[in-house]
Every structure is written in structure tokens, then in C-alpha cells.
Design a binder for these strands. Structure first.
Lengths: 182, 182
DNA sequence: ACCTGAACACCGTTCAAGT
DNA sequence: ACCTGAACACCGTTCAAGT
């Protein structure tokens, strides 16, 4: 059951990659799978629900390189940050799509908690751990959204140059976190 | 000349505050100033041009608390970061509006360059200064976008609690920058 | 210079009706 | 269970025509 639902989701992601988030409309998506727009509402109650499902699908680890839970906190933050950015850059308007996500589910909260736990074992207070993780995630989202949407010089840089810029900023934050450690 | 153009801009900002970015349409905006939608295109070539003008207008310092150019680099970064967040939070969907901004103008580049210069006098390399400023701005945009749009626990926190969370993250980054200083 | 009227080519969503 | 047809209430934008 629900395989048609997945077919809609799959087609939506393909359409996103071809035309961007602006061109992703219920009517065009429906046409792509040989159906009328109204039929999509049997599978998703609204366009926003479909967009949310796309975010969850893309952000779900799958076989992503995830650092083991006993890895050092900075390695875990690096992996999460790079993985998140990777997912966004892998799809046209990926960052903008993520930014439309309204209600983070339990799996997002779980990933968040794992990172906080890793920092806590390094000796931070609970509050400091939350601040650290929040800061890294806000940086990743802000940086990648700008990298992918803004018409700035950096947009024309080659990928490895942009990776370097991103990681330099990330290391800056990790250094800041390290300084608050006992 | 152009005072009608400013009237449109003013009305657009008022409408944004009342109905949000979703409800900000050319037709409703036109009705508000007693005109048809098509008349707006005498003043702005497109809706995107109007949105860009709104961002420039809101982000233009005006009489904002701006740190003097000879203030220490961290004080300047704090002022810029808080000022930017303040502007976003002062308007409904302010952060989302800013994120639609496609082509940063020369005034944005000038503000950026001032911050880089402040860091350079503190002894950083040019590259490190750019990274530091980029990182702070990405954090502010990412954090505020999340603060204003995401349906998370933090959204219901009182303002002073949210200010604290924001500033804690900011100080984390400033500490990281400080560690790279000679 | 500034605005209207009318049109063009679209949107998301609902709902009775069909199979 | 899943889809169609038709409609509702909208969009941004263009362009000839009016004053």
C-alpha cells in the first residue's frame, strides 16, 4: 500500500531537479504521471504536505555516511554538517526546499539529541551543548541557502573552492565550541 | 519624482506586516492604494523588483545603531549581527523576505568590506577575515530564518530568552574567530 | 505621466460523479 | 480505491486605449 504515494513523491523530486521549486506545480506534477491535479489530493492533503514529505525523504539518512555514536563530538558535527549541505546541493533549490519545511519530525529531533549527547560526554553543560548544535545547524542552513540562491561571486566558484569556504567557517565554530570545553 | 514609487513601497511593507509574504500580491497591494494591479508596473518592472526594493529599504541603516569604524572588530560584528536580526524580526516574514533577495547591491558590499577591514586591523589574513564575516552573516540568516518560520519549541519562547539563545551562538563564533587571531 | 480594461496563461483546492 | 470534469477563487504580467 502507498506505492502510488511514493511514485508521486519520486516524480516530485525529479520534477524539482528539472524545473526548480518555482516550476514544481501540482498540475505539472500530475501531468508527469498521467493524471489530473485533483487526483494528487488522494495521496497528499496539500502541496505543503507533499513538500514536507520531500524534505523528510531527502533528509532521511538512508545509507549516508553517518559518524558512529562513539566518535568524537567534532567529528560527528562535521559529518552532520557536511551531510546536510550535501543533501541540499544534490538537488536544484534543495536549500530553499528545506527552508519551506515547517514541522520537524521526531527523526530530526533524534539526530539533534544525538549530537547534544556527544557534546555532553565531552563535558559541556546541557545548555552549552544545545547552543553549540543550534549554532552549527543555523550556519549550515544559512551558508548553503546563500551558496545556492544568492547571485554572488562565490556562486561561480568551483565546487572544491566552495567546499573549502564552507569548511573554514565550520572549523571556526568548532574552535569556538572547543574553547568552552573544560 | 518617484514619490508614487515610494508610496507603493511603503504600502507594500505595511501589507507585508498585516498579511505576510504569502498574502502580499500585486492585486491586493494595488487595491490598497486605490489602483489596478497593472498600474504598479509603471513603478516596478516586476514583483521581484519590488521585493528587492523592500529588502534594500529595510536593510538600509537609516538611523540604526551602527558601531563606529574604529570600534573593536567583535563589537562591530555584534552590532551588525544584532541589527540584521532586529530588522528581520521587526517585520512579519522579514527573514523570508530577505532570503528572496537575489542581487546584493553595492551598499551591502560596502558594509561587508568594513567588517573585513576591522578584522584585518586586528591582524587576520584577508582570507580569514572574509571567512569570519561570512560565517557570522550565514549564522544570523540561518538562525533568524529558523526562529521566525520553523514551528519549533523555541518559537514560543519570550523575546529575551530568544535574544539570549541568539547571542550565545554569536559569542561562540566570536570566540572561534578570536582563537585564530595572532 | 499615470491609469484602466481586458485578456493571457497560469495557480491550489474542492467536490460530485464516475469505474 | 483511485480518478475525472468542472468549477471556485485566485495569481503575475502585457498591452492597447484612455486622460
Amino acid at each position: 500500500m502507498g506505492q502510488r504515494r511514493d511514485e508521486v513523491l519520486q516524480a516530485a523530486i525529479e520534477l524539482l531537479d528539472e524545473v526548480g521549486i518555482e516550476g514544481l506545480t501540482m498540475r505539472v506534477l500530475a501531468a508527469r504521471i498521467g493524471v489530473r491535479a485533483s487526483a494528487l489530493y488522494r495521496h497528499y492533503p496539500s502541496k505543503q504536505a507533499l513538500l514536507d514529505a520531500m524534505v523528510v525523504h531527502l533528509a532521511t539518512p538512508g545509507a549516508d555516511p553517518q559518524a558512529p555514536a562513539d566518535a568524537p563530538w567534532d567529528e560527528q558535527l562535521r559529518q552532520t554538517a557536511n551531510g546536510l549541505r550535501e543533501v541540499m546541493l544534490a538537488h536544484r533549490d534543495g536549500a530553499r526546499l528545506m527552508s519551506t519545511f515547517h514541522t520537524p519530525g521526531p527523526e530530526a529531533a533524534a539526530g539533534f539529541h544525538n549530537l547534544v549527547a556527544a557534546l555532553r560526554t565531552a563535558g559541556t553543560t546541557p545548555d552549552a551543548a544545545v547552543t553549540a548544535v543550534d549554532t552549527v545547524l543555523a550556519y549550515v542552513n544559512g551558508h548553503t541557502l546563500e551558496e545556492q540562491t544568492r547571485k554572488t561571486d562565490a556562486r561561480t566558484w568551483p565546487r572544491d573552492r566552495r567546499d573549502l569556504a564552507f569548511n573554514n567557517g565550520l572549523e571556526l565554530i568548532l574552535t569556538g565550541i572547543r574553547a568552552t570545553l573544560p
